[in-house]
Amino acid sequence: MLKKRIIPCLDIKDGRTVKGINFKGIRDAGDPIQLAKKYVVQGADELVFLDITATVEKRVTLVELVKEISQQINIPFTVGGGINSIKDVAILIESGADKVSINSSAVKNPTLITEIAKEFGSQCVVVAIDTKFVNNEWNVFVHGGRIPTQLKTIDWAKEVERLGGGEILLTSMNNDGTKAGFAIDITKAVSTTVNIPVIASGGAGTKLHFKEVFQETRATGGLAASIFHYGEIAIPTLKTYLKNKNVAVRLS
């Protein structure tokens, strides 16, 4: 049986791991390579690295980091942040990233999704959608959640699938950083609308939250950052708990 994936996310700024609270207020959480290796040993199923600085001059640092990650870890990983062109994608894939995650650039230029899919295959295109519940509907936000768009989340998710996206990483900005649980309603709506894998993100605070998102939605992965970084939930404990609750997980 296909297992539900537990995916720690490492936000990278200037080569260090950081985690924002509600997309703001950044705290330092350590060396990304050491953290990544620790998660692999603990049984993480995939890793996501999001470069939240991603300015042009810092790009080189990221590429070097991606090469080192690829040499040192033996599970798949995704790299995102500031990817604007097929050229950016090519450098990261050639440096060893298994997938790339695009967000604002996909909204701005949706054909980028198709271009990447054609060149490197759909499986390596993760489209990250930052969504917020405002005026009674879920809308898409870009640029780290700062700028609203006219796009309704469900419509954009369908479009992402149609354009050749391989996976959707859905982050609820209302829930992110709150530790009050994933946004079950929008995760359920998106994951039942599309037939590509959906990763739920934003709001994980307890083991129960993962059980809820896996049992009440079609999400195939759950992503979290701070609860893993600060040791609030250990991955082996989480996975054993999920297995006991009849959620299929990989135990190493």
Binding site: M1, L2, K3, R5, D45, G166, N195, P197, R218, T220
Partner: peptide, 13 residues
């Protein structure tokens, strides 16, 4: 068939 989630992505036994 794309009646289920495709690609088959993740860990399986």
């Amino acid at each position: 068939p794309n009646t289920k989630i495709v690609p088959h992505m993740g860990w399986n036994s």
